[in-house]
Design a protein around this nucleic acid. Structure first.
Lengths: 223, 223, 223, 223
DNA sequence: CATGAATGAGTGTTCATTCAT
DNA sequence: GATGAATGAACACTCATTCAT
């Protein structure tokens, strides 16, 4: 005990400890309210209240409602792509497995969580808030598409996949995720609908097609 | 009820006809503006102006902005799939063609139109209209899924398709349509993204799969 | 009965009559409050309250606090210069009399009235609200200077005045008016100070100089 | 007593000296910011920052923004004219030169400095500080007027000036200074306006008049 | 004494809703 | 019925002031 004679676990004074925790608490509250109400319909005062602070305090940490929203997106979505991209590089699995894995991971960590609500939000309120949509496009949509395109390209390079337009393939792969995200889950959802089952079927179909193979015959290797 | 039982050309004097037409004109204007701006960002004054009436008059027919929105949804979404189902029954094309046709038709007549915009809105601002969500589920989602499921079942029955879970297959087929609807088109959209091209790739992938057939044999190149 | 049987003086309905009076009432109230409190310290709500309307109504007629202020300036100052300039053109008095007249008129109709407070305001809050000061410069200062410069030029042309730099002379002439305006009048003012007397002395000095003429001798006509 | 026990150079430890210097540093910073921004537009936080202390510390020394402003006025305006009066008494120049000198000096040492800015502020926002107005009248306006009046009286006594009402003449002389002070200098000012030139023209006019001498006779051109 | 995190009343502005005409 | 002038409750954001540390 170098310093104070009563060295409890709480060395930092309460005020200071709170200061460091504030942004995180606000970000969490903001995520909840934005997802619940949408961007336009969210009142900053409610976010502040849920974080247990006053309106003024919120603006101490985030300079505007829009900045706060961006911070929420960065914290909950943007960062994930960086990790995933790195993860891809050191995987040895087949590209098929990789694709299935990537989609399942996205659903588990984004789509099925509150972060998924953010994506829904952006799609909905895109018309207004043009600055926000640009940000979202760059920070979320583009990296996501790029990640999937990279896996598809890898599959093509390794002759696992047919040669297709990788960008459109990436969009196709994203579609079911968007679909999943859009649909209300839980009580309001389609009764008996199981997201994981849906993803399995989706991956099976995308990889093997719906059509019955037409009498498998010789096929020249993809040029 | 727009179709009165006595559909004469012009019996009612013009003044009165306008009076009876008012709600319809307002609903039409409201559809336009809501789709363009979103619910929160829409000003009732603009709707009134587009319908050629004063703000006060709007409130004569709809007790609030929210009621007006509900009326718009009810008018435009209900019965969306009524005719289509019948059309299916008398088609003789292959199930593959049917599927491609159905998806393209949906995009052409719903997804890319104002009705599509309404669906986007519903998804987006559903949080604020919990009562509408069931309605939307029953009137739009369920029939759409059923329609696709029927085609898939037909394909399986005729040995055109592999036997798969028809409901999940239907969801899978709806996914790209939802994706398409969600994404902003025109200037705000992804540069270089072509919805029709996207649908082609999608249909190709869903029917033939992404994976190279396991036991590569001779097969004529798909024309 | 097209012509109602009780044709009182009030043919226009009360609501409508008010509508036409509103801008004037608001402008009057705004003049009072702006002069009393300064631009920044004035709350639009107080202006509205003094005009007997709600805050919202004010914005029905003026799109912002700044626009309202500009309108006040236009109504109370800008317009006067146009009249004066025309008046000048048809006067036959000597340039000396004209100058004295112009300055007295300005003091009577602007400087000594609430409008004078506006000028004081502009000088004070010039640092902030750069848009406002540009407007004021163009709308008030420039025309005022131009008017005085014109009279001085006329005097020079008619050999009534010595040839001097007319623009600086105009500034010199404006100086005492600015001085007058700046000084609190009434109870707070300098005891025994009489603005009219001040102007007389000023005009006398500016025209004849303070210095004793040095033995009047031959002097070549101004080239 | 060469090393007096009290007025040493630096007996107090640095910490404490800072403590005692605080109010002065704050007043200096406040002067700067108030003059730059005006009272309403000044943020106490900026004053504190410029003084190198925290916002809270400022309130330790001044109970409110308003009190701080008053203190600034009292510190910077009082005694403005104390020395000048003595200086006048021992000058031997002509009264004409004295007047020109006095006005130029005032502009150089007061009008164009921060103190001048304070006067502008006082005039502008006086409405919000009624108690300061008497103070300003006694400490600034009155002594300034008296000083000029004394010079004019001297000129009359020495037959340099025409006999005029000395008090009003003093006001007339102050007018251009007030005018100068009021007008924004630098970039915001009237383009091409030169304060020194303005003062020259002013002095020339006030001393020799604008009007051509009535009985034009030979007179050497003013050098 | 000094700090700076926290506050909350206050600001200009918007817009759904009302109601006298 | 139809109008549109009027309303006032919100809203995002600011900043003088307080007070726990």
């Amino acid at each position: 005990m170098p310093q104070s004679p009563t060295p409890s676990a709480d060395q930092t004074p309460r005020r200071e400890r709170r200061k460091e925790a504030r942004p995180g608490e606000l970000l969490e509250a903001a995520l909840d309210v934005f997802v619940e109400k949408g961007f336009a319909a969210t009142r900053v005062e409610e976010i502040a209240a849920r974080a247990g602070v006053s309106k003024g305090t919120l603006f101490l940490y985030f300079s505007s409602k829009e900045e706060l929203f961006k911070a929420v997106v960065r914290k909950n979505i943007s960062g994930l792509y960086a990790n995933w991209s790195a993860e891809i590089d050191c995987m040895t699995a087949s590209s098929t497995e990789m694709l299935a894995h990537a989609m399942q991971e996205w659903w588990k960590h984004v789509g099925s969580t509150k972060a998924g609500g953010l994506c829904k939000l952006m799609a909905a309120e895109s018309g207004n808030f043009p600055e926000l949509i640009d940000f979202y496009q760059q920070e979320v949509e583009a990296p996501g598409t790029a990640l999937l395109a990279r896996i598809v390209q890898r599959g093509i390079d390794r002759s696992e996949f047919r040669p297709v337009d990788v960008n459109y393939a990436a969009y196709v792969l994203k579609a079911p995720l968007a679909f999943l995200m859009l649909h209300p889950q839980g009580d309001d959802g389609i009764p008996g609908f199981d997201p994981d089952r849906f993803l399995s079927v989706q991956v099976d179909l995308l990889l093997h097609g719906l059509a019955v193979p037409q009498r498998p015959q010789d096929m020249p290797a993809a040029s």
